[in-house]
């Protein structure tokens, strides 16, 4: 479990997050939603230990994230950031192989190679493996970076807007994979995901943490948070809801 304990973040003189107190359960997918500028990516980066809070602390499975050794943290948390730019000349396979770095530190073993092959297969990248990353489309790059994070084999997976560049098929496939890997069990991974696609959150997320103006607006099971009145207040626009056999869909009115 991740315990976010009264966390605030200031960048220069601007307050980005204030007094965030929330919990992210280890089982299932937790979606971070909210309007632009609400502080979703900032909170994800804080939870990943990539930025330091101005106040408060974040405890992951009983240990302060910001006190963990770099390598130890990378063996517990894999992070997919929004940035896709690369200056190194890498093939897709090279990139995915970097996901194993926290485990082998430059000396890959057979097990690492097997996991890379598995990641390439799982994200439908086997055909693209020898291609240079810079020649890929935005969606293909997104899949390659996601495969790299998956190959890190960590108990926690944090993804910052992974669906932004994906076509509907790959977006559904990714969410389905995240759903499977986050089911309770010894191999389960906790998933924290920033999404703007509210229907992806409504269909796939088990828990939702909604942020507004740098604070927690609502938190809890997805069905309790993703209601038209709450979404309407969260986004300052009316929302409707349609119940389908696949689940609940929401739409702005």
């Amino acid at each position: 479990m991740i315990e976010i304990d009264d966390v605030s973040l200031r960048v220069r003189d601007t307050g980005i997050l204030h007094g965030i107190a929330a919990q992210v359960p280890r089982d299932g997918i937790t979606a971070l939603i909210g309007p632009n500028g609400a502080g979703k990516s900032s909170l994800l980066h804080l939870c990943a230990g990539l930025t330091t809070p101005s106040a408060g602390r974040i405890v992951l499975d009983g240990e302060d994230v910001h006190r963990m050794a770099h390598r130890d943290r990378a063996r517990r948390i894999a992070v997919l950031t929004q940035a896709q730019a690369l200056t190194s000349r890498l093939t897709v396979k090279d990139l995915v192989s970097f996901g194993r770095w926290p485990h082998h530190q430059g000396r890959p073993r057979d097990e690492d190679r097997q996991i890379v092959e598995e990641a390439l297969r799982l994200f439908d990248l086997l055909g693209l493996a020898p291609r240079q990353v810079e020649t890929l489309s935005g969606g293909q790059k997104a899949r390659a970076f996601t495969a790299m994070a998956w190959a890190q084999s960590t108990p926690w997976l944090f993804l910052d807007e992974p669906l932004a560049a994906l076509d509907p098929r790959f977006a559904r496939d990714l969410m389905a994979q995240l759903h499977v890997m986050s089911r309770p069990g010894p191999e389960a991974r906790g998933v924290l995901i920033v999404v703007h696609d509210l229907n992806a959150a409504a269909l796939w997320a088990d828990h939702v943490l909604a942020l507004k103006d740098g604070g927690v607006f609502a938190a809890g099971p997805a069905a309790e948070v993703m209601t038209p009145p709450r979404l309407s207040t969260l986004f300052d626009t009316g929302f409707g809801v349609v119940e389908t056999k696949r689940g609940r869909l929401v739409y702005p009115e």
Partner: peptide, 11 residues
């Protein structure tokens, strides 16, 4: 060479 943020996520 992967960039500061990505390198840090890899430990």
């Amino acid at each position: 060479g992967l960039g500061r943020v990505r390198a840090r996520t890899l430990g």
